[in-house]
Design a protein around this nucleic acid. Sequence first.
DNA 1: GCGCCATGTAAGCGGCGCATACTTTCGTGT
DNA 2: ACACGAAAGTATGCGCCGCTTACATGGCGC
Lengths: 206, 206
Amino acid sequence: MTERYHHGDLRDALLAAATDMLAETGPRGLSLREAARRAGVSTGAPYRHFKDKDALLTALATRGFLALDAALRAVDTAAADATPLERLRRLGVAYVEFAIAQPALFRLMFGEFGPATDASEELAQAVRASGAHLPAAVEAVRREGLLGDFETEDVTLLAWSVVHGVASLYLDGHLHAFERDGESSGVGVAERVTRVLVAAVSSAAH
Amino acid sequence: MTERYHHGDLRDALLAAATDMLAETGPRGLSLREAARRAGVSTGAPYRHFKDKDALLTALATRGFLALDAALRAVDTAAADATPLERLRRLGVAYVEFAIAQPALFRLMFGEFGPATDASEELAQAVRASGAHLPAAVEAVRREGLLGDFETEDVTLLAWSVVHGVASLYLDGHLHAFERDGESSGVGVAERVTRVLVAAVSSAAH
DNA sequence: GCGCCATGTAAGCGGCGCATACTTTCGTGT
DNA sequence: ACACGAAAGTATGCGCCGCTTACATGGCGC
């Protein structure tokens, strides 16, 4: 039954194999031919499901943004009883945690692509969905009157930039000097930087 | 004379060709063979100067970090008469400007590599040199007593993360929604976010 | 002036992305 | 029930790639 001519769910099998290869050897070691081999199929078969290699990478990135969206959504509901400011901060930490948990996927999602949103409508939609959490959380803080004279848009940009910067720099090994104690997960750095940012913005807004 | 058997400076010619290809078609369209062709040399010749393709990429990244170091150094001397806080802010803007001016190079320098610093001692040294400006500038601000209770290390991390995040997100086309007027260079975004950050931190520190 | 060795060339291996032409199977309409 | 067309997988081949090995060239120190 595993030897049937038609695979049945080759598209998913290819994406799974590609996900493994991505985690194992990075984007450089990801080939359609090898993914086909892992799925037990000839090297030309993938082209029945993906126009070209970029289409598979786009699908992978789309899945990544959906996973990020789910992770941020989970944080949002899990921290339902916290203050808006704390919810925003936890969202930022979760963003970094996602990147650290799946470094190669995170790198694929950002960078390595042109204007990522051009590749497919599904990707663009997933990008929008995952990117909506931070602005919403900042809006919630604003409604509490905790932003003072700062513009909502600017604070959103600031928050996003900080967590994305921390994630990127950590993945590239540039933040080892900022880690303390034995903690080398990178999450500690994210905790500290988000606390400092929250302290600065909220106390500056009286 | 251009037809001599020994090129004379093939290593530099290869790096120049690779730099062009990087800017033209991104890292995906960068091949040793094509670089050799552009340098007017056989396809095996590059291996006399670079152990493998990664060695060339490492050399390219090293040059990038040296260029970044030079750019930041230039800002530091050009803004010699400004206040320490303003010097720090301009340093951050220059960081983003560098990334926008050479997007493919910036992407190569960060990401696409493992722990970048492992590849060669020269690279590690260039990374350290380019990374020393921000901490020094934050130190200068601290000496003015403008950091209040914030830890120097945390502020450095915050500043670096913000500008790196802005640069990365802008290159990936995620910040178009944050741009205003006709300005689409991305520098305007960097100006705004750095001003907001400076305002938040300095006013929070009384 | 001569020989060494760095520098370049030629040719070839296996892997890759992708296109084309062919084969097998599934599902559907009568 | 069954033919048949479309969907899904195979076989083969092209050109490019990274990299290796064996060989050719010529600049430089002795």
